[in-house]
């Protein structure tokens, strides 16, 4: 067991974990931040994407102990009170979600895409950049629209 501490959604937290505990387990089980989901066990689906020190990572493929001392942002940390993050708002406006299970990872990846590619992103780029996020419900059509619209929203 190791004691770890990190800053999650701006709040300092610490906890005791087995060395083999994954970051996603620490978030979901220790901290009850259950917005981050697990959809596969091969790092393919992206339901577990969070930001670690400002960039997207698959929280199912990083140990909690490896995140010791880091800044973590999860889906729970995006909205400002009842005011949705521009990307969350874009997903709502464009029907970019159905069952909601892949959505937290999609939104976290989408913000990372905008951070790297700017606010005016073409469809092909968005589709390529979403390679690590699988959705079974939407057929991606409205997710792509959401990411493009969210990018514009983020640009103000």
């Amino acid at each position: 067991m190791q004691t770890i501490s990190m800053n999650i959604n701006g709040v300092p937290v610490s906890g005791e974990v087995e060395d083999r505990t994954l970051l996603v387990q620490f978030l979901r089980e220790n901290l009850r931040l259950t917005g981050t989901h697990v959809g596969c066990d091969t790092s393919q689906c992206g339901a577990c994407v969070v930001h670690l020190d400002g960039v997207s990572v698959k929280s199912c493929t990083i140990l909690a102990v490896q995140s010791d001392g880091c800044e973590v942002t999860t889906i729970e940390g995006l909205a400002n009170g009842s005011h949705l993050h521009p990307m969350q708002q874009a997903f709502k406006d464009n029907h970019g979600l159905q069952c909601g299970f892949c959505t937290p990872g999609m939104v976290m990846s989408a913000i990372d895409i905008v951070n790297r590619n700017g606010c005016d992103i073409d469809e092909a780029t968005v589709r390529k950049e979403l390679e690590g996020n699988i959705c079974r419900c939407t057929g991606y059509h409205n997710i792509v629209k959401s990411v493009q619209a969210g990018a514009k929203n983020m640009g103000g």
């Binding site: 259950t34 917005g35 979600l97 959505t103």
Partner: peptide, 11 residues
């Protein structure tokens, strides 16, 4: 949508 978009779904 709001609950799903903010991580407040209950699966």
């Amino acid at each position: 949508d709001n609950r799903f978009l903010t991580g407040k779904g209950n699966y």
